[in-house]
Amino acid sequence: MKKAYIRPLDLRHGTVDLSHGGGGRAMVQLIGEIFGRAFDNEWLRRGDDGAVLPAPRPGERLVVATDAHVVSPLFFPGGDIGCLCVHGTLNDVAVMGARPLYLAASFILEEGFPLADLQRIVASMAAAAKEAGVPVVTGDTKVVEKGKGDGIFITTTGIGALPVGRELSGANARPGDAVIVSGTLGDHGMAIMAQRENLAFESEIRSDTAALHGLIAELLAAVPQTRVLRDPTRGGLAATLNEIAQQSGVGIVLDEAAIPVDPQVAAACEFLGLDPLNIANEGKLIAICPAQFADALLAALRAHPLGTRAARIGEVTVDAQHFVQMKTAFGGRRMVDWLAGEQLPRIC
């Protein structure tokens, strides 16, 4: 009998069609040739419905986080939906203080989506996962009819192990604590926006998308007394600090002059009438710690390549209203409120 032959996927001109999600041979082929090849590891090779994972070390607890990614455009300066969907979920696990261990990924593909783009995205995901040292151990693929999706949506879920005794939460901020940010704000959102609006600047604004668990490990080793870690993604610094103020039942007062913003990003925000404090970041960290450890925390951040522009930007206060306020560089005072409505849809 002749050996069964399946023609390889046309990765140059081919597109996703409904059969790729149909559960037949075409689906198996897509998974094998694109996902299996890129993510290759012992769990995927078994081809089972789920991954069997070892239990964490005794006394450790598990942290799980999930994140859907619908960013448009799919490819942007500094990254693409592939690395973004790895970084975004890893960071959610890492800011809980956990060591990220495994990722799961689920893809919704639209009929007609170029296989070349899919391969490029999956390669970027695989590279980001490899760099972070976190394997993608299980996944799922669905295909929707043309017009019912927008190319590709990716949901990733991350699992991490929380070392014994570590307790980080947005509810832990105390009056007098220092508020620190790991670098310039608004880079990711403005990179997307500039690309979407075809804004040309002298030098390109690049997304800051990055996995933060390395930086966080250094930070927690230097200052285990750190109370809150958060990554200011959608809604930017403003939304994240308001969340923390609500959760902890405190106020926060920022010093505008101390907040790092890249001049290009500031110019783009000025041009579009946006506030960098509301713009999404994908590789930045907010850390809150008791004031006496602020210098040590800053030093730990600045010693890491992802934290060179870290800055102490404010302090936690007593405020029954849980407002976030800011001393403006101009010399006045104002609130830093949640953003109303949607400033930049489909940012991540």
Binding site: G251, V316, T317, V318, D319, A320, Q321, F323, Q325, M335
Partner: peptide, 11 residues
């Protein structure tokens, strides 16, 4: 500006 409507106690 709505913080002005309510007196705020400093830490």
């Amino acid at each position: 500006g709505r913080f002005r409507d309510i007196p705020v106690v400093a830490a």
